[in-house]
């Protein structure tokens, strides 16, 4: 019973994290057969946006199957399928491997903890006495296609031989893009009340949201049917798509998106969008504003 409750709790955690991601970067709608039916949306990009990526997914995986999108970065290659597949349980969704590695070093001593997965934490300690410890965080081994930065926090304490805090207890937090490394220096010294430092203890929390992707087996590649088209307008430029990834290079500002059917057919559809800078890293992407829902 306890195990079932734990699994349920875990599922809820996973579900809520995926849903929050879903709401940020994608939308789903139904286009009716009203004559001239056009759904009309607005997305606002800010920060240092270079372009908006947009992909129309006609009748793709049913919404309740919790399709997953990387919260940031380039839109993953998704496919259009004409009939919704069976709903897949969460266990059938493939976890995207994204994690952090942390190494603590002082003099010739070092200690490493690897693969701190998204939404998890690990402890690390090193007995190096007083002095400057080097804390290095990297992403080696993480799926290199995932460009979204991982966020983390590191709580640290300098402790004496009986576990009492000496000096230098605090928390650092930050974010790290795949392929990058960050290094911090933590200085532990003697305390007037608790004496010399014996060790440095860390608790590293990877605060990145867990992302899930559809397992390869559940996706069938088919070309766009042409039953739906979508247009993006920004300034004096407009582009059209039937399902191919659109890249609209329009900088910061409002992007208008229209979805319609040239054969006036009712369709369920989804779309994914992301405001990105010149390096393909997500900038500030507003939530989707529905201007007209037909």
């Amino acid at each position: 019973m306890k195990k079932i409750a734990q699994k349920t709790l875990l599922s809820l955690i996973v579900l809520s994290s995926v849903e929050s991601v879903f709401a940020l970067d994608s939308g789903s709608q139904n286009l009716t057969t009203v004559v001239g039916a056009t759904d009309y949306f607005k997305v606002t990009c800010s920060g240092e946006t270079d372009h908006l990526n947009f992909k129309l997914l006609e009748n793709a995986v049913a919404e309740t199957s919790v399709v997953a999108v990387s919260p940031i970065t380039t839109i993953p290659a998704m496919t259009v399928i004409d009939t919704p597949p069976e709903l897949k349980p969460l266990s059938d969704l493939k976890t995207v491997p994204q994690f952090l590695n942390v190494t603590l070093t002082i003099a010739k001593l070092s200690s490493t903890v690897s693969k701190i997965a998204a939404s998890s934490n690990k402890d690390l300690s090193l007995k190096g006495g007083n002095g400057s410890y080097s804390l290095k965080i990297d992403t080696i081994g993480t799926d290199s296609t995932l460009k979204n930065p991982q966020t983390y926090s590191v709580q640290y304490q300098c402790l004496n031989s009986v576990g009492k805090v000496t000096t230098g207890s605090s928390t650092v937090s930050g974010s790290l893009t795949t392929g990058k490394t960050k290094t911090y220096t933590i200085k532990c010294s003697k305390s007037k009340t608790t004496g010399d430092t014996s060790s440095l203890k860390l608790k590293i929390t990877n605060k990145t949201a867990i992302t899930k992707s559809i397992s390869a087996a559940s996706v069938i590649e088919t070309p766009p049917s042409g039953n739906l088209t979508a247009q993006i307008i920004k300034g004096q430029n407009a582009l059209n798509t039937t399902g191919e990834l659109l890249v609209m290079q329009g900088g910061n500002g409002d992007y208008s998106i229209m979805v319609n059917s040239p054969i006036n057919t009712a369709r369920n559809y989804r779309f994914q969008y992301s405001c990105l800078n010149t390096s393909g890293i997500e900038t500030k992407t507003s939530s989707l504003q529905t201007i007209q829902d037909q």
Partner: peptide, 24 residues
């Protein structure tokens, strides 16, 4: 083929017009 269509938008309104719709 392929099917052509036009979208006309003004303010918060947008509609899709195909050849079969005629004049709108």
């Amino acid at each position: 083929m392929p099917l052509i269509s036009a979208q006309v938008a003004k303010g918060n309104f947008a509609t899709t017009i195909t050849p079969s719709r005629g004049g709108v």
